[in-house]
Write a protein that binds this DNA or RNA. Sequence first.
RNA 1: GCGCCCGUAGCUCAGCGGAUAGAGCGCUUGACUACGAAUCAAGAGGUCGCAGGUUCAAGUCCUGCCGGGCGCACCA
Length: 556
Amino acid sequence: MSSEPRWEAAQVAIRQGLATSALRLGVENPEAWIEVMEPTEEGHGDLTSNAAFRLTKTLKQSPATIARRLIDHWPELPMIERVEVAGPGFINFWLDTHWLADVLPQAVAEADAYGCRQSRGERVLIEFVSANPTGPLVVVNGRAAALGDSLARILQANGYAVDREFYVNDAGQQLAKLGQAMAIRLRELAGEPLPDPWPEGVYPGAYVRDLAEQYRELTPDWAEHALHPERREALGAFCAERLRRQQEQELERFGVHFDRWFSERALREAGAPERMVAELEARGVLYRQDGAVWFRSEQFGDQKDYVVVKSDGEFTYVVPDAAYHTHKFERGYDIIIDLLGPDHHGYKRRMQAMMKALGLFGERLEIQIIQLVRLLRGGQVVRMSKRGGDFVTLAELIEEVGVDPARWFFLERSADTPMDFDLDLAQMKTQDNPVYYVQYAGARIHSVLRGYRGLAAKDPENVDPAEYREPLEQALIRDVARFPAVLRRAGEQRAPQVIVRYLSEIAGHFHAFYRQHRILEEQPSVRRARIELIRAVLVVIGQGMGAIGVSVPERM
RNA sequence: GCGCCCGUAGCUCAGCGGAUAGAGCGCUUGACUACGAAUCAAGAGGUCGCAGGUUCAAGUCCUGCCGGGCGCACCA
């Protein structure tokens, strides 16, 4: 249950005020022209509008003149302290600090509901990570995990019911290769030499040997199994299940919990791919050529047609994938989000084309590509390749830099930008990591609140907003008031980094305030007001950090 | 060759068509007998890859180049 966010209320009131003025000046349908936003620069008010510029054509006057006329009969509103025309015609609004200060007790009272919105009855499905169960998770999976989980948290705070789902590719070719690798490792355990050369496409990673050892413990006639090609799939399935569980543990350790692990094998066993092909056939979007079955992808906006059933009768991977996506739609989600890895560029159009061919709504399916993560060590790019068996795992990354900094680092950058992750920097210079900057602000507030316990009885019960005189106090009040709007924007733009930026900002204001002003050593009335302020700041830091899955320790 | 993403301070990156383009790191100079110096204050540092176009207004939108990354299989 959350009350009216003051910042947004002010925005709405200003828009209405400007619309009323514009109407009086003879503008038809003024709402369409009026925009109220946060200025990029300090000194340009709390909220600003460019309405005058946009009305020059209609009113045939200079923006400065229009701006003056728009605020000519500006009504007295308790929330607005000052209105001014600035520059070539901007209208800047300063909100009344005392009016805004009401958000402080509100934030403190609402605590972990502050900034959140009531349920809107819409369901969201986010599929992310979905790494193949053929090895440990790697660094880019960590980026996907951090982004998907944070997005889920942000959307939940915005009133959506969100499910996190992991699609497990526990079928098909990769499983066979995994089984083959397993057979090789079992024979190695039996004392046979490793094949030379190593077979093409078979995972050479040493982790398969660990799995082989586990298999030996559990299976009396393990040596037999290594020799029978028809056992390969079962061996692969054994590995896949083990590796999937290992991935799940690593993700839990990273603070990411999936609501559902959706099995491709189950989908196949239920005959979904066959039904998918039949459905496409019935819609007349398939044709036969060179012994294979092709999908008319070009008709639906893709670059070229592609094969759905190979000449050997096997499905290509898009068929079960399309069946899976259809299944998502059938489950009734209002928004379906896929976060895909950087090796799925071509896949996006392909899946959208197929959904279009099936008559499913394209807008409800959002596909976001997460770009590459390059690791730097000693100033050199660390080359990673799963097939080459040479990679840095997510577990190793967490070991080196810790969960909180790793998450922060991933979320700091927008998903569609390839990023460099400098391991040396993250490891050696942890004190420079911005995540500690925000956590330190939280720890300082906790420390002050501990010190306040013995003093609280001497202070007045109620806060007098007139005590907020310092610019930094007022900046913090604005930060607290702005938070619901920030959370909302992060959700609309599907951009956790909006929260990250905000947190750095409010922490900066807090540290400056803390160095410059005393809290506990002030007069009771001032002290009471400042305690209320920092309690609210702590709530907001907690809410923001919660939205990106980073902790706020009481001591550090 | 085609498609997607990216070129902004020495480095890593922000920047919902709006005002004098920002932050962190690094560099220079200052601040603890004071609630936690993992902090704060001040300074230096830019032809926003290049060229056109749209607009009252372009780092942001459009077109073409240049540079980098990643994709373009009867692989997943």
